[in-house]
Design a protein around this nucleic acid. Structure first.
Lengths: 248, 248
DNA sequence: CGGTTGATTGAGGCTGCTCAAAAGGTGTGG
DNA sequence: CCACACCTTTTGAGCAGCCTCAATCAACCG
């Protein structure tokens, strides 16, 4: 919605989050970077809680997240909901490109978020003219696969405590890798316990009890949408966390 | 291992499973098809139960599955195991290409399987010279993502019966789409109940009870590694199955 | 035929769910 | 500034789906 203040006249003429992420995956030339920066024009601000992509929506545009946090989710008719992914700046929200199939899940902003929008045909042209970008996006899809696999393992094999710990470890590492706020003061994680439950396959009631215990054990703190990890190493042991899958 | 008989002097000069799958994802020219057929040379037979890719293995080659069934899995030190994917002919077993990161999971043959092997550098050359193949592989990765997401939803939100039903529905549809045996006589699914449990996040004991009930309700039959679906529509209702995510 | 692996069944227990209610926070309007 | 509504967090009590432990049975194999 808003567009008002804040957001500064931009950092040191810096690249946006998408460019930074793709550059980590494949060497980008100046022309590639320029093409990516051009996408800024299409960016719009989305209000916290607002929908970014609807399930069933045709992929007429690909939509990279430039700032903020979003989540992908699949809703059941009966009210059940599974959160499928947490998206950080640089991640692609939807219309991943080239596929004709409609979105198999929805995407919602968790914070105020800035999202670009590249029409599918313009996007095809970019991929053709910039093979390095195509390569980087392909690799990004493969890294996303690894994240999805880790999520499966989490849901399938770990109990509630390990599960939550693992999710928090993953987020800490991804935020750090993305150069996002990861001072020891914690980071923004604007999920209600209800939503955290939807991500972990747990009830909000049980989430509350698990958070309480992790807090008691001085591993974490979670208040007003701010997650503070007090002892990452110990949390990683609890979660049996191995960050290898997050690297390229 | 063996290489003996069977497998005929090849079907009507037909394409292999990989070519067929990629052709469904992007229009392939004759040169593209030729390049893909060339991979046949590198194909080798793998014994049922044998390892195709080890977790931690560097991705020195990409390995498409040409015939047979395989599964991706992640093992814990303490014996827990999560099966992450069931791979059908045309699927990529590992070394998905271009990424430097070592395999985050292992891959095992479930039946006797034929697997090609393309050295990473030769593969890079193919992608460069055949953008249509690169495009198809990118799309394949996106479809695989959708399958992984469905797997997450399955583990996170459904109870044991729905879960198993959903897995069987997915397999039926994927086999059909791949042109594999899907006569009403059922198809080969050489998973022990133990392994089925590893896929579904359940104990073998519980798997047994769930199978028993699905059998009693005349929905399916599962014997000696052959799954027979008696009433797919009813199974899909039970699983709340929507095949949309499997299409391109 | 013994040995091994997988399917099946029983009994009991625990994790995580359901139902329910109270308490804390926040925004709105009077 | 209080009253009220609404949402989220927190806590309690009871229940059940799935697990654990354990034993029996069935199939396959050298």
């Amino acid at each position: 919605m808003t567009d008002s203040a804040g957001e500064a006249p931009s950092a040191p003429s810096s690249d946006n989050a998408l460019t930074r992420k793709l550059a980590r995956l494949a060497p980008l030339g100046d022309a590639d970077r320029l093409a990516l920066e051009g996408l800024e024009h299409s960016a719009e601000w989305i209000a916290p809680g607002a929908r970014i992509m609807a399930e069933g929506e045709p992929p007429t545009a690909i939509r990279p997240l430039l700032e903020g946090i979003a989540c992908g989710h699949k809703d059941f008719r009966d009210g059940r909901r599974q959160i499928i992914a947490l998206l950080l700046p640089g991640d692609i929200c939807g219309g991943h490109g080239r596929l004709r199939a409609p979105m198999d899940h929805g995407v919602r902003a968790l914070t105020r978020a800035r999202v670009a929008s590249i029409p599918a045909d313009g996007f095809a042209a970019i991929l053709e003219r910039h093979p390095a970008i195509a390569e980087a996006l392909h690799k990004a899809a493969l890294v996303d696969q690894a994240i999805l696999r880790a999520w499966i393992v989490n849901l399938g094999q770990r109990d509630a405590h390990e599960r939550m710990a693992h999710l928090f470890c993953e987020l800490a590492h991804r935020m750090e890798a993305g150069g996002l706020q990861r001072d020891d003061s914690g980071f923004r994680l604007p999920l209600t316990q209800q939503e955290l439950g939807s991500a972990l396959g747990l009830t909000s009631v049980h989430v509350n009890r698990v958070v309480k215990r992790l807090r008691t054990e001085t591993l974490i703190d979670l208040d007003h949408g701010v997650l503070r990890i007090h002892d990452l190493p110990r949390l990683e042991v609890l979660a049996d966390f191995d960050p290898a899958y997050l690297s390229n």
